[in-house]
Every structure is written in C-alpha cells, then in structure tokens.
Write a protein that binds this DNA or RNA. Structure first.
Length: 255
DNA sequence: ATGGCTTGAGTGTCAAGA
C-alpha cells in the first residue's frame, strides 16, 4: 500500500499537477492540505474520473484538507473534537484498514505571536485526540504539513532558523509529545540523503539552491512502522511550472 | 533571507504563508 501527503497550496490552481501525479505514482491514498476552497469549488468529478474517492473538509480562501483514495473510505471524521475552531485543518478516514489522519498544522507566523499561541494549543489538542485515536485504530498514520522541522538536520541553515518559527523548542517539544504516543517519523526509518527537504520558499530561487525545510511528515503507529519499507520525498512536482512550494512525501507499506 | 513569490479576495491592494 502506497500512501502520501502533499500541501498543494490551492487545489484549483494545482489540480493538473495532482491529476498527473496520481497517474504517475498511483498511490492508494493521498492526503492534501491547503485546498483553499469550499466543497462547491472542490473537483470531485475530475478526481472520480481519475479513479479516486474524495473526502473534503474545506473553507473559503484558507486551509482545507482532503483525503483521496482508490478504495472507499470508511468512518470519516472532521476537526478536533472539543476544540472549537473555524479553521479546517483535520480530516480522517479508514482506507484498506489503515486509519489516515490528514492534518494541516498551524503555521504560527512568529514565536510569541497570537498565532504561535494558537499553534501550541492546537498541537496539544491534536496530541490528546491522537492518544484516543491510537486506542481505537492501532494501524494509524498521521500525514500532513506539520509546519515543524523536527531537528537541525531538517533545516538548510540551522543557525539562521535557531529558535525561529517552525524550529522553536516549544514546537519541537510538541512534535516529540506526538512521537511519545508511539508514533515514528517514517522518513527516519531509512537512510536518507543529507539536506532532504519538503518545502522551499518561492523567492530567492530557493528550490534551485536547495534552501528548504523538512516540515511535511508521515508518522506511523508501531503496527505500521513494522511494515513500512520505504519513505521518500518526491521533488519532481516542485520542478514544474507554477508548482506548489511543498513536495509530496510517500510511504510504502507491506500489505 | 525580514523578502526578492504565490494565492485568494476582488478591481486596488492586502493578508497569509513558512
């Protein structure tokens, strides 16, 4: 089973890239972030024609998450229970017996800002909910744009980013709390090239210079980590005309 | 490397991203 995550930075703009990518990579499921549309603007028909079911939790202009899957998704859920929030950042469903949690975690803007406080509260709420979800669904994968670079090796220039948003200790602590639930960063199960990143700024020719961060992740429960045999970042779509600033991350699980 | 893009909203120019 092949499952993936991709922050597309507007699904309306990126639909051709997504359809091409689905045809090439043939994932069993793809989690999307930043669809930036309500259901009315979501391309259900085009995705169905491509052979994918789609679940969407969207809103106008910002955020929005979706799960695409070849098999029919079951037991869909949206948002964080008990966390009152108009921002659409979570959708979950079971596909082929694997619980997929698709998350677009808050950016936080700047350490110490109101948005940073919201980010930390949101991460805490997610962690509490995940603890329960893991009881219900031992075969669970958390996929998405975490907006956290876990370690200095996930940052092109750690000195520049030291203590900054996406790299601050409180954010990294929040990620470690998630891992402490029994989740594993699939990317680090395997040897990887140095300076592997999943996001590059649109400015300053950052992609060509590989000035990036690894902030898109797939975390696996123990039952899934045991059967994971690959995790890769696919940089190919980032080279296209009008790309998303993020690249897809893919894991392969033995059936 | 403090924005040199990109998007959505909406028609002039801003908010937000990371």
């Amino acid at each position: 089973m092949k499952i993936a995550t991709w922050n597309v930075n507007s699904l309306k703009v990126r639909l051709p890239h997504v359809l091409d990518w689905l045809a090439i990579v043939q994932p069993d499921a793809l989690c999307l972030q930043e669809t930036k549309t309500e259901d009315g603007g979501f391309p259900f028909a085009a995705l169905e024609a491509a052979g994918y079911h789609a679940l969407h939790n969207g809103q106008k202009t910002y955020n929005g998450v979706a799960i695409l899957s070849r098999a029919e998704p079951e037991n869909a859920s949206r948002d964080l229970p008990g966390f009152d929030d108009p921002q659409k950042r979570i959708i979950a469903a079971t596909v082929n017996g694997v619980r997929l949690v698709c998350a677009y975690m808050p950016n936080g803007q700047a350490v110490g800002s109101d948005k940073y406080e919201y980010k930390l509260k949101w991460l805490k709420a997610l962690t509490g909910w995940l603890r329960e979800e893991l009881q219900r669904y031992p075969r669970l994968a958390l996929l998405g744009d975490f907006n956290i670079a876990p370690e200095d090796r996930d940052v092109h220039d750690p000195a520049v980013w030291q203590g900054q948003i996406l790299c601050s200790e409180a954010e990294r602590d929040a990620l470690r709390s998630m891992l402490a639930l029994g989740l594993t960063d699939a990317f680090r199960l395997f040897d990887q090239p140095e300076k592997s990143f999943s996001w590059w700024d649109y400015r300053m020719m950052a992609f060509r210079r590989n000035i990036g961060l690894r902030i898109d992740h797939i975390l696996l429960s123990q039952a899934l980590a045991e059967v994971c045999h690959a995790c890769t970042i696919d940089k190919a779509p980032r080279r296209l005309e009008r790309p998303s600033d993020h690249a897809p991350v893919i894991v392969e699980l033995v059936d």
